[in-house]
C-alpha cells in the first residue's frame, strides 16, 4: 500500500524485517502523535544484538522520535502519545508499568547535542555508577578510568578529572557523554547524530569507537551522513515522513535498495 503526499508516493511502513543475528529489541506497529500531529505511522523495526543499526532519512522524518521511544525519553514530553509495542526479550518496554529506571539503565542514550552534567569530568562518568551500584572509591576510580579509556578521551582528561565537564570542547564533551553512557554497562546504546557537532578527526575517533562498542553492546545510531551509515552499520532503516520505508542489511540498502525512494535518497537525488 502507499499514499500520495505532496506529489510523492510514500509507501506504508515496511513489513520486510529480516535480520541474521539474534533479536535484541523489536518495535512493532508504532504510531506516535505530538498533540494532534502524527509523527510516526505504523513503524516496525527489529534491532539485532551486538550489531549497529543505522536510521537514515531527511530532516523531520521521525528518526529522533523513533529512537527516543526505545528508552521512553518521549515520556518527558507531555503532549506525546503513542500506540504500538516495543519489546526487549520478554520485557514490554511500552508497558505502562515498565520500570523506567531499569529500562534506561540497560538502554543508554547519547544525544544529538553533547549535554554533560555541569559537574566534574569524574562525576559525569561516576554519577550513574554511584547511583545504581554502590562502588567503593577505588572501584569507582577504576570504572571511571576504564570508561574514559573506552570512549577514547582518557589521554586528554587524565590530569583534569576534577574540571567541569562543560569546560571541554564539543567533541570531547560528546566522548565524555559516551563514557558516561557506557560506564553504567547498558546492553543497548542509542546515539542520536553523535557526530553532528564534531570535526572529521573526532568523527573518525567516534566511528572507530562505535565499531569497538559493537563487540559488547547493541548500537542504534541516527545519522545524516550516508557514508557514515555505510561505514559503521550492519543494518539500515530508511525513514520518510514518519514511515519506515525500507529496512535491510546495510550493503543491500546501499547497493540495490528495493524502493525507488530509498535509491533517490542515498544517491542524493532527492526533493
Amino acid at each position: 500500500m502507499s499514499e500520495e503526499i505532496g506529489g510523492e508516493v510514500v509507501p506504508d511502513s515496511t513489513r520486510e524485517l529480516n535480520i541474521d543475528g539474534e533479536l535484541d529489541i523489536m518495535i512493532e506497529d508504532l504510531d506516535l502523535w505530538y498533540g494532534t500531529k502524527q509523527a510516526l505511522y505504523g513503524v516496525s523495526l527489529p534491532i539485532a544484538r551486538n550489531s549497529v543499526t543505522a536510521l537514515i532519512g531527511p530532516s523531520g522524518c521521525g528518526k529522533s522520535t523513533l529512537l527516543r521511544t526505545i528508552n521512553r525519553m518521549n515520556d518527558l514530553i507531555p503532549i506525546c502519545k503513542y500506540e504500538g509495542t516495543i519489546t526487549k526479550g520478554d520485557v514490554v518496554i511500552t508497558d505502562k508499568g515498565a520500570d523506567l529506571v531499569e529500562l534506561r539503565k540497560s538502554i543508554g542514550m547519547v544525544f544529538q547535542r553533547p549535554n554533560p552534567f555541569p559537574k566534574s569530568i569524574y562525576d559525569n562518568v561516576g554519577y550513574g555508577v554511584r547511583l545504581h551500584h554502590q562502588p567503593t572509591r577505588d572501584e569507582l576510580d577504576a570504572i571511571v578510568e576504564k570508561s574514559l579509556k573506552r570512549a577514547a578521551i582518557w589521554n586528554e582528561v587524565a590530569d583534569r578529572l576534577h574540571d567541569l565537564g562543560t569546560s571541554l570542547s564539543g567533541g570531547q564533551q560528546q566522548r565524555l557523554c559516551i563514557a558516561r553512557t557506557i560506564a553504567i554497562e547498558p546492553d543497548v546504546i542509542l546515539m542520536d547524530e553523535p557526530c553532528s557537532a564534531l570535526d572529521p578527526i573526532a568523527t573518525a575517533a567516534i566511528e572507530e569507537l562505535i565499531l569497538e562498542l559493537k563487540k559488547d553492546f547493541t548500537v542504534v545510531i541516527v545519522t545524516h551522513s550516508m557514508s557514515q551509515a555505510a561505514r559503521v552499520s550492519d543494518y539500515t532503516g530508511f525513514m520518510y515522513l514518519g514511515r519506515m520505508v525500507e529496512f535491510n542489511k546495510t550493503e543491500k540498502i546501499f547497493s540495490e535498495p528495493d524502493q525507488e525512494l530509498t535509491q533517490r535518497y542515498i544517491t542524493g537525488r532527492f526533493g
Binding site: 542514550m109 549535554n115 555541569p118 550513574g128 547511583l131
Partner: peptide, 27 residues
C-alpha cells in the same frame, strides 16, 4: 534549567526525585 540536562539525567536512569535533587536543584 535546560531540558537537555534533565534528559541526560533521565538517560542514565535517574528517578524523577534523583533528577530533581542531583541535577535540577543544584543548577
Amino acid at each position: 534549567v535546560p531540558t537537555s540536562l534533565r534528559e541526560s539525567a533521565y538517560g542514565v536512569g535517574c528517578t524523577q526525585w534523583q533528577v530533581t535533587r542531583d541535577h535540577v536543584l543544584p543548577s
